[in-house]
C-alpha cells in the first residue's frame, strides 16, 4: 500500500504551520505521529496533497505544570499542560500522572501497542476525534480543556465542546491543537478508566467508560461524572446529579443506568449495539466503584 503523491512541509513555527494549513485549505493535513493519518492515506479514507509536519514546531512537547501567575482562565490555575505533540509513551512515563491523574495511565497503558505508543501523540488522539480514542473519556471526567492556536491567536475551551462528530472537531482552518490542560482535581477525588476490548493486547476499545468521583469529609459522594468512549458519535460526558443519600451500590447502579441511557452505540464487527450497551453498564459500574474507592483513599 502506498500513499498518494504528497508534499511535506516542515514549518519551524506555529505561525508558519498555521499559515501553511490555511493557505493550502482542505487538501492539507497536519501530521503529528501519523499513526492514524498515514493509515488513512494508504487506505484512501483520507485524501490529501499536502502534509504539514508539526515535528519542528517548538513548545508542543512535554508534560508540565502551568507556570504560576494569573492565567486568563481561573479554572486553569495550576493546570497540567500536556503538549499536543507529546507521545503516548511520554505521557505514560510522566511523573506528573499522580493521584487522580494517574487514571490517565489506565488509558495510555492499554492503548495500541508499544510501537504505536512511541509514535502516536496525545494531540492526534484528540484532534483525530475517532469515537473509540482512549484519552478523551479520562480527560473529560478530569475536566480538561484544549488549547487551540493559530497565526491569529490562542483560545482555550472545554474539551467537552471540542468534538462535533465522528472525526470532526471545532478546529477552524489554520487552527492547531497545541495542548491539553488538565486542572488540578479537587481534593478527595478519584478517577478510573475501564475499557473493554476483544483481545488483551493491541486492540481498540469496543466500549470504555471513565469515571471521576469527589467525596466530602464523610466520604459521601459530592460530585461524580462519567465519560463514554466508542459507544456514541463523540465521546460523551455524563454529569451525575447530586443524589439523595443512598448506598454505594445504589449510586453505582444509578450511574450505570445513566451511562447506558447516554450511550448511542452502533452495530459493527466488534459487537452489536445491545452488547455494547451491556458493556457500558458493566464498565460504568466498575469505573465508578474504583473511582469511589480511590477518592476515599485519597489524602486531602
Amino acid at each position: 500500500m502506498h500513499l498518494p503523491d504528497v508534499t511535506i512541509h516542515h514549518p519551524a513555527s506555529l505561525a508558519e504551520a498555521s499559515a501553511t494549513l490555511r493557505r493550502l485549505g482542505p487538501r492539507a493535513r497536519a501530521l503529528a505521529g501519523g499513526t492514524d493519518l498515514v493509515v488513512d492515506l494508504k487506505t484512501r479514507r483520507v485524501d490529501a496533497d499536502h502534509l504539514v509536519s508539526l515535528a519542528r514546531v517548538p513548545h508542543l512537547r512535554g508534560v508540565e505544570r502551568a507556570p504560576l501567575g494569573a492565567p486568563a482562565n481561573g479554572d486553569l490555575a495550576g493546570a497540567l499542560r500536556i503538549g499536543a505533540l507529546t507521545t503516548i509513551a511520554q505521557l505514560d512515563r510522566s511523573p506528573e500522572l499522580r493521584g487522580s491523574l494517574s487514571a490517565l495511565r489506565e488509558a495510555t497503558r492499554d492503548m495500541a501497542a508499544t510501537q504505536v505508543r512511541h509514535t502516536a501523540t496525545v494531540g492526534g488522539n484528540i484532534a483525530g476525534a475517532v469515537p473509540c480514542a482512549d484519552l478523551p473519556p479520562v480527560l473529560l471526567v478530569l475536566g480538561a480543556w484544549v488549547e487551540i492556536a493559530s497565526d491569529s491567536g490562542t483560545r482555550t475551551l472545554p474539551l467537552v465542546s471540542f468534538f462535533t462528530g465522528p472525526r470532526q472537531t471545532l478546529l477552524a482552518p489554520g487552527e492547531l491543537l497545541t495542548a491539553i490542560l488538565v486542572p488540578p482535581p479537587p481534593t478527595r477525588t478519584g478517577a478510573a478508566y475501564a475499557r473493554f476490548s476483544l483481545r488483551e493486547g493491541n486492540a481498540i476499545a469496543v466500549a470504555s467508560v471513565a469515571a471521576a468521583v469527589t467525596v466530602d469529609d464523610a466520604g459521601r459522594i459530592a460530585r461524580a461524572s462519567l465519560a463514554l468512549g466508542a459507544v456514541a458519535p463523540v465521546p460523551r460526558l455524563v454529569e451525575l446529579p447530586p443524589g439523595p443519600e443512598r448506598s454505594d451500590d445504589d449510586a453505582i447502579a444509578d450511574a450505570a443506568r445513566r451511562a447506558v441511557a447516554a450511550s448511542d452505540p452502533i452495530n459493527d464487527i466488534r459487537g452489536s449495539a445491545e452488547y455494547r450497551r451491556e458493556l457500558v453498564r458493566v464498565l460504568a459500574g466498575r469505573a465508578m466503584r474504583s473511582a469511589l474507592e480511590r477518592a476515599r483513599e485519597a489524602r486531602p
Binding site: M1, V38, V116, T119
Partner: peptide, 27 residues
C-alpha cells in the same frame, strides 16, 4: 500488514521501537 497491526516492520528510532510502515522517511 503495512498499517501498524503486526509489528513485523519494527525498527528502533532513537532506541525506541516503532512501526516503520507508519513513519514517513522524509520526517
Amino acid at each position: 500488514c503495512d498499517v501498524g497491526d503486526c509489528g513485523a516492520c519494527t525498527v528502533l528510532l532513537d532506541g525506541e521501537p516503532v512501526n516503520a510502515c507508519l513513519l514517513l522517511a522524509a520526517t
